[in-house]
């Protein structure tokens, strides 16, 4: 079922690292606003959104590459499960980026202060959830191959 040499491990490791680091910047955004540091909140929220988009671009590049190498949704069972699994993850990251950009816009309007830090915490919970799913996917799908 597997295509030998399909995965580009160094490339995907970097994008996994990018997503992992976006979790760090997300939690730093929360720490900033809990201390009423609005400037810090803006910077870290924006960083997180950028890292998320970087990850998505990596996924788009990877999907294109795989498709050119002959792996597609309907090629075989591996193609089906791979694209649906990682694709759904990507869709969740996209929603996360939308949430982050919405919150970032709100910070520019000055609508998020220390009293509204709960908004950031909830968005953060979602973002970390998406991240831990990728931790599992990266290990099980990319690194461990039968």
């Amino acid at each position: 079922m597997h295509y030998d040499g399909l995965f580009d491990i160094p490339f995907t490791s970097v994008s996994a690292f990018v997503l992992l680091m976006s979790s760090v910047s997300m939690v730093l955004a929360l720490a900033a606003i809990q201390r009423d540091n609005r400037r810090g909140l803006q910077i870290w929220l924006f960083t997180t959104a950028i890292l998320g988009m970087l990850f998505l671009s990596g996924q788009a590049y990877e999907f294109t590459e795989f498709y050119h190498k002959g792996l597609s949704l309907n090629a075989n069972l591996f193609g089906t499960t791979f694209f649906v699994l990682t694709g759904f993850h990507g869709a969740h990251v996209t929603i996360g980026v939308l949430i982050l950009l919405s919150l970032f816009t709100m910070t520019l309007q000055g609508r998020i202060t220390q009293a509204q830090s709960l908004n950031i915490e909830l968005a953060g919970l979602y973002w970390h959830f998406v991240d831990i799913v990728w931790i599992v996917i990266f290990t099980l799908i990319y690194l461990i191959q039968p």
Binding site: L73, N74, N76, L77, G79, T80, T81, V84, F88
Partner: peptide, 21 residues
Amino acid sequence: LFELMFDRLFDANFFNPVAGG
């Protein structure tokens, strides 16, 4: 249902025994 959707709309192979589903 999502798997069924991919099978029906996008020709995926979750439940297709010919392709290993």
